[in-house]
């Protein structure tokens, strides 16, 4: 498999930069979103020092990092798979001697990497200059953050993959993908930090695996989580991730058994 990783990553990257306009469009959407959020926080914090324990600097950094992560992760794998199932082109992927989820994963990683370069780097510069987001000082925090981002990335992939594969069962998964995406945005802490929610609701969300996607990595980044709690948190995130990957595998297997290829 490993010998195939690079060629697939390369194809994914090449595909996503095939049209110059595509990354530029995406590039222009994210700063707008981030800037709107920035203004919102500036207004919220105008009469208060802290909200739910966040200073204005932390809150702005939180939202900047969250959208940065999303801009690289969210490669629309769910829609890609759904499209190929509906058109029947999935047949061409399934006739290869490759484990299909792996094929999708590496190509998706290629898209992520090209986005990282084309969208995220300019976005980082933008966030740094326009919003003055903070950066951690010590290497250890960076290392933990990197590990948590890796888990988050794989989680986003498993969810998108499952949503994509749901097209094997229901012919129209676009609405489903949309609903799931909005739910994840909310529950994973992309829209606002989870601890901004009312206590009861927040404590529910803190038990959901979705918090490992945006909330936990950013807590690590901001140093808002005690050092000795980081490793156990990452470990349980890892276990959740394993569960998700397994679920994705099972759903895929079940899907291929009942798949009918559309079209002639």
């Amino acid at each position: 498999m490993s010998s195939l990783a690079w060629p697939l990553v390369k194809i994914g990257a090449l595909e996503s930069i095939a049209f110059r306009l595509r990354p530029i469009m995406a590039l222009s959407a994210y700063p707008v979103t981030i800037f709107a959020n920035y203004c919102l926080y500036m207004a919220v914090f105008s009469h208060r020092e802290t909200v739910a324990g966040y200073t204005v600097g932390e809150a702005v950094t939180y939202i900047g990092i969250a959208w940065l992560m999303r801009s690289t992760f969210k490669t629309n794998t769910d829609r890609h798979i759904g499209y190929r199932v509906r058109s029947g082109d999935i047949a061409l992927d399934l006739m290869r001697p490759i484990y299909y989820p792996a094929l999708v994963f590496w190509q998706n990683l290629g898209r992520t990497l090209s986005r990282l370069l084309i969208i995220s780097v300019p976005l980082i510069v933008f966030s740094k200059l326009a919003m003055n987001i903070t950066t951690p000082r010590d290497l250890k925090t960076w290392a933990f953050f990197a590990a948590s981002v890796a888990i988050a990335h794989l989680m986003v992939f498993s969810i998108d993959f499952m949503v994509g594969v749901s097209a094997f069962f229901v012919e129209f998964n676009v609405e489903f993908a949309w609903t799931i995406d909005l739910t994840v945005r909310l529950m994973a802490g992309l829209v606002i930090p989870i601890d901004f929610f009312p206590k009861a609701f927040a404590s529910v969300l803190l038990h959901s695996p979705l918090k490992y996607i945006y909330f936990l990595p950013i807590q690590i980044y901001l140093g808002r989580i005690p050092a000795e709690e980081i490793a156990p948190a990452l470990f349980s995130g890892f276990l959740w991730l394993m569960g998700m990957l397994l679920a994705a595998h099972i759903l895929f297997k079940a899907g291929t058994r009942r798949l009918t290829i559309q079209g002639g």
Binding site: I11, E15, D89, A91, L92, G263, G264
Partner: peptide, 12 residues
């Protein structure tokens, strides 16, 4: 070969 589809990546 499925004559009505292509196994080639479309944009590259």
């Amino acid at each position: 070969i499925f004559g009505q589809r292509t196994q080639l990546y479309w944009d590259i």
